[in-house]
Design a protein around this nucleic acid. Structure first.
Lengths: 208, 208, 208, 208
DNA sequence: CATGAATGAGTCTTCATTCAT
DNA sequence: AATGAATGAAGACTCATTCAT
């Protein structure tokens, strides 16, 4: 008789809206996506949407927080491992897998444009921090283990890892001929080259 | 008798609007930028804006076309050179210089979000094509000259060059501590590493 | 569970907007009427207006279509009658009654000015066709029955009936002293005279 | 050496603008006609337009005043004539000729929609008054001469003459198959029938 | 809880008009 | 006198959000 709110049902519906919003944001960008479009994608009424998220901005924040949480969780899972280079390699593989869903690459571009709004800037910064922080420890360890170059600080190397993954996502979003599947191995190789030991002043290397 | 239209004055004013729009787009994104904000930035009335550009979209297209034209012009200037690797090195330097204006990095992110609109997609594709085409010849030449790796096609290598520069721009836009000036040398080194000869199956390289 | 949309309520509201628009169009003309004025007249918010009609033009089209439907319905009701002249007389009476609402006369003038826009031209042509087609059969029958002149084709006579009614509407809209009530009998007489048998070359009739 | 203002040149240019405006108003209606369109039609710059007419409304007023003046002049020319019916017949012929220029019919419809603006209402009323006043004397005289019916006052008959001519113009503007040339004779006949002597209670006339 | 009709603030864009040349 | 670049007030329309059912 008592009306029990089913938390599982609530969470499922929330996720469904988040997924619909992710799809639309990735396809059209945040500003160009109307709440009506999200509702249509999620097959719900507009009233329902605002039951779950007080504003449109909150869905985006919800997505970003989810992403941040996943990143944090992933790194938590790795804790205890000894093979720093292995963790970094697994992280790259994870990134490639994430971007195999083309929506993801599109989404990353889409939200790039809303960084200017403070509400989003904070969430994006938190997301970035989760990745940077998560990586930093392993980069440091890899350096201590002598597995990777030490001429740059661990922090800078970490930033440069994201340079590669962000550029990878950009390219997937831009270029139909560039897919995570086909170019993933090159990404692995590129990271390897980036982290490799500083060159001995050997001879005739290109572009140095 | 009639007042002669001064084309120089017209072009100057047009450029001023383009510059103002670039500033606002970079800061707020395309959609979030109001025409009123562009007018305020350019210190003109709204009527004047639409005197120069029939719609808000046309300013963005104008900016993109300008960029494409500059890219094309730059590669035209290099024609006749023999040192493919030198051209690539200069291109990197040019890119670093471009992104020393932080607006540029912000702008690149900002327009990433509007790719979904066909009108912009075409212009962005043209822009991308100008860069890819411009680079392709030099990458091929460098390969023929034995200066860079040949295990990937010239086209793929070219794409990967833009992976690096796009990621570089993203990072500048995202991370206040990451500047074109400070990280430019690392970009040069990263390109060098990316293009370097395929590794002999030596031994213990990280992440391979 | 879901709230059932009440179609009656929707139709009523739609009609209310149409009525408000008719009032404003008749008073100020189509172009000079702002959507804000229609909303004020209908006591609704601007958003509601566009909820029912996607553009301002669509309200006008809605009004015209309603008029066309009413004309068609009226003629459908007459089908089966034998007294062609009676039908024509009733049509005149109906016209007089319609124009007893001065808004109607004003509205007719108002939309005359927008004929140039193709979207409206089509609707106005359809409206005109409904009247002409509806009348034509009865005019033909009246001719066959020998009740009216036959020196002009039925189609031309039909056109001339609308010359009279259009002119009647114009005059009502133009001249405050000219009302449908007072001049209706003259309209009936004028139609009678127009349709009367061709004059035998008798003698001294004016203006012939 | 002295710059003499050439009044003839000025008047000619003014007329050219009036003619251009008439063309555009007739085609598109007053509100939908932009000053830019008038300038393009007249092959002048926008600045020049406002040299001759302080506002867009003033061109329309200029056109209307010109029409009123022509009407007045026409009736002035007839003064002294004895054949009232002949004058009315000539007036009808003049009307037919005027509407042989389809622009005129379009123009009449076009301005019908702007009656609501007081500035125009006054000019249109003046125009109407010129016609009504001009006709009234001849209608009265024709009645005194026993040439036309006397069961309606001269003023009402005069109004009904314009019902016919207004309706005639409407139909020309509405219906491509209805031209002043082809239907002019019917207009003459219709006026004749309208003004003819009251029917003796003869027999079975239609629609009475 | 779920819905979608209603709302109005905010945007892009048009266009009559001004004014320096 | 003639021009057209510059202006900003005003209008059509969009869309996030509210709330009665």
């Amino acid at each position: 008789m008592a009306r029990t709110v089913d938390p599982a049902r609530h969470a499922a519906r929330r996720l469904r809206i988040i997924d619909a919003a992710l799809t639309r944001f990735a396809a059209d960008g945040y500003e160009a996506t109307t709440t009506a479009a999200i509702c249509a994608e999620a097959r719900i009424g507009s009233g329902t949407f605002f039951h779950y998220f007080p504003t449109k901005a909150d869905v985006l924040l919800g997505i970003l927080e989810l992403g941040t949480a996943e990143t944090t969780a992933w790194f938590d899972e790795q804790s205890g491992r000894e093979d720093a280079v292995g963790v970094l390699r697994d992280w790259i593989d994870q990134t490639i897998e994430d971007f195999s869903d083309r929506r993801m690459a599109g989404f990353v571009r889409a939200v790039g444009a809303v960084m200017s709004r403070p509400e989003f800037a904070a969430a994006l910064a938190a997301d970035d921090r989760a990745t940077q922080t998560g990586l930093l420890g392993w980069v440091e360890l890899a350096q201590q283990q002598g597995s990777i170059r030490t001429d740059l600080t661990a922090a800078r190397l970490t930033s440069w890892l994201t340079v590669l993954t962000d550029g990878f996502a950009d390219r997937i979003a831009t270029d139909d001929g560039f897919t995570a599947g086909a170019e993933g191995p090159v990404l692995r190789d590129a990271v390897h080259r980036l982290l490799g030991p500083e060159a001995d002043e050997s001879g005739d290397v290109p572009l140095r």
